[in-house]
Amino acid sequence: MTATWHTLQGTPLLWLAVTLLVFEGADRLSKRSNRHPLCHPVLLATPVLIAILLATRTPYPVYAQNTAMLGFLLGPATVGLAVPLWRNRALVRRAAGPLLLALFAGSLTAIVSVTGIVWAFGGSAQILATVAPRSVTTPVAMALAQQLGGIPALAAVVVLIAGVFGAMIATPLLNALRIQDYRVRGFAAGVAAHGFGTARAFQVDELGGTFAGIGMALNAAMTALLLTLWAVL
């Protein structure tokens, strides 16, 4: 029995099965909550999986090694972000100037504000590098955090928090600012809250959702460029 367990503990079979099962359960709960941002499957699944690792005394590196296949898919998924941009090229081209200006302003605000506040709290360089890419989609944020010397796991969670919060405040905040154009509303949600903002925007309006997707993909590129520039300087 123990021997069997020890053999299985070192296999992707066990950990992929456990991860997918837990995620599927979390996803069903999330669906039942009508996709409320606070019920995001990752938010529900992560604590459960952490508890399972603690209960079975599995060291995290063993788990990470055996679920590396899932993480690998983040690479091609990041490359695939080019596809929605390309599909919506006509929309992007029509408002290219204002779009890029807003993108630059939003991206810069995101980086400066988050690093500024953490710095004011006395965060180390490692923490600054972790939070700097907080407004971009998770795979890019993790890659950037790693590149800049941050902690990818923490970056993933920071991005998650930003997404949940962004999706929750999008409608009240944009109403308070009296923004009526759905292109503007969607784009702002996508730039500030990546996939969460995009999902939220699609719930409200089709055009808004499309612009949120554009904002998310463009911001991934812009933040990567700005942070690269920052790292080089």
């Binding site: 995620f23 992560t46 952490i50 993480g71 989609t137 993933a156």
Partner: peptide, 13 residues
């Protein structure tokens, strides 16, 4: 995308 970064988020441990 969500399921792909679950292993990374568990890294919080």
């Amino acid at each position: 995308l969500s399921v792909m970064f679950v292993p990374a988020a568990v890294g919080l441990i």
